[in-house]
């Protein structure tokens, strides 16, 4: 008999996935810029991939972290695939904030609407970090490991992401009242 860890039955693993499914779903929606349908598509693809690779998860490690990492990697794969097919995705424009001209064209009925628009328009690299920290409540260290980034990059991108959303929210109803 060796000291190997016995792998839980698939059914138990599925139950454990269901327990954090709401968080994973929100994470997917965040990565998808708040788009519910695209988020659920990513969630479905991630769960399918995970279930087909459950044998690759190492017992004794966090199933949750494994799933979130798999989801994040899958999302990157999907974006690269889109780019390979000539569909523009701003994955490299990590630190771009909206320009003055762009902001001038924006007008929102509420701050919430502005925040939604900002998430949809935000460069993907900023969105990834904001999703992990703000939506999923991860530490900078966890986020760095999840996204394969230095912690300093997590910190600066998060700050830029907040500035990005702020620039949109400032185009909301308060601005119109103040004008």
């Amino acid at each position: 008999m060796t000291g190997t860890v016995t792998k839980p039955a698939d059914e138990d693993l599925r139950g454990r996935i269901v327990a954090f499914l709401p968080r994973l779903r929100r994470f997917c929606r965040g990565l998808a810029g708040g788009d519910g349908d695209r988020g659920d598509d990513l969630l479905q693809a991630a769960v399918e991939r995970a279930l087909s690779r459950l044998d690759q998860w190492q017992p004794g490690t966090s199933l949750e972290n494994w799933m979130f990492k798999l989801t994040s990697n899958l999302h990157i794969d999907q974006i690269r695939s889109l780019r390979a097919r000539g569909i523009a995705v701003d994955i490299d424009e990590a630190t771009d904030l909206p320009g003055v001209d762009e902001l001038e064209r924006l007008e929102f009925r509420s701050e919430l609407e502005a925040a939604r628009a900002a998430l949809a328009a935000m460069p993907q690299d900023l969105r990834n970090v904001m999703t992990a920290v703000v939506l999923d409540g991860r530490s900078y260290r966890d986020t760095a490991q999840l996204l394969d980034l230095p912690i300093g990059t997590v910190m600066s991108r998060l700050s830029r992401a907040r500035q990005f959303v702020d620039s949109y929210v400032r185009r909301g109803p308060e601005r119109m009242v103040a004008a």
Partner: peptide, 25 residues
């Protein structure tokens, strides 16, 4: 605002089933 824009919601049974995760556990 960001958290309100993408709230955490319960996952409908239909979606759980679609994901192949329906289990008594």
């Amino acid at each position: 605002l960001v958290r309100a824009a993408v709230p955490e919601e319960s996952v409908p049974d239909a979606l759980v089933a679609r994901l192949g995760l329906s289990t008594p556990a």
